[in-house]
Amino acid sequence: MELTVVHGDITRQQVDAVVNAANRAMRGGGGVDGAIHAAGGPEVLADCVRRFPDGLSTGDAGWTTAGEMRARWVIHVVGPNHRAGETDRALLVSCYARALAVADELGAGSVAFPLVSAGIYGWPKDDAVAVAVETLRASPTQVEEARLVAYDAVTYEAIRQRLAR
């Protein structure tokens, strides 16, 4: 699998699936979650309600339509909320591994990932980058391209440097 980083907007990526850093309720929110729901339109929320009436557990993943986005699917993952005391690194690792497993089930060849839990959930950025790169490199998958999408230049540079190791 090719693992790359781009500086940009995850909702505008031309990939088979985009990964959403969702909350447990699966009803939209802020940050990446809000951007994906806004870009995808009401179909994304309607599919979340239909497919996940009770939401998703932390560390788990599931898919919906991508609605009006270029991607075909959204793979929703629920990252651990570090600020709320969810500090088990295995939950963050699980987000990336489960997202790849769901992508394999869907037959997605290309997937765009945000840096899960590193925003409002407060996971330390250096470790969030390490988990993303290590897990995506180590997980068996049929995905041909995993793309880490950094919204800001500082995050882009941190991921770029980690990929160069």
Rank of each mutant, 00 (worst) to 15 (best):
L91Q: 14
A21N: 13
L115C: 14
T11K: 07
V129M: 04
T141W: 03
Q142L: 08
R70K: 13
A21P: 14
V44Q: 02
E144D: 11
R165G: 15
G30V: 11
L92M: 05
A146N: 04
L56H: 13
V116I: 15
H82Y: 15
A71F: 00
T11W: 09
R51L: 08
T4E: 08
Q161H: 13
P140N: 12
D88K: 02
R50Y: 02
D126Q: 12
E2Q: 15
E145T: 13
F52N: 08
T64H: 05
V18F: 06
V77S: 05
E145C: 05
N23L: 09
A46P: 02
C48L: 00
S57R: 14
A22K: 04
D88W: 10
V116T: 09
I120Q: 13
G67H: 12
V32K: 12
P140L: 11
A128T: 08
G85N: 03
P42A: 08
G119A: 02
G55N: 02
G28I: 04
A138Q: 06
Y156I: 10
V5Q: 05
T64E: 06
R51E: 03
A146Q: 10
G34D: 06
V129S: 05
R162P: 10
G107K: 00
T87S: 14
T64Y: 09
A146K: 07
F52E: 02
A101E: 15
M1D: 02
M26L: 14
C48Q: 02
A35E: 08
Q13K: 10
V32Q: 06
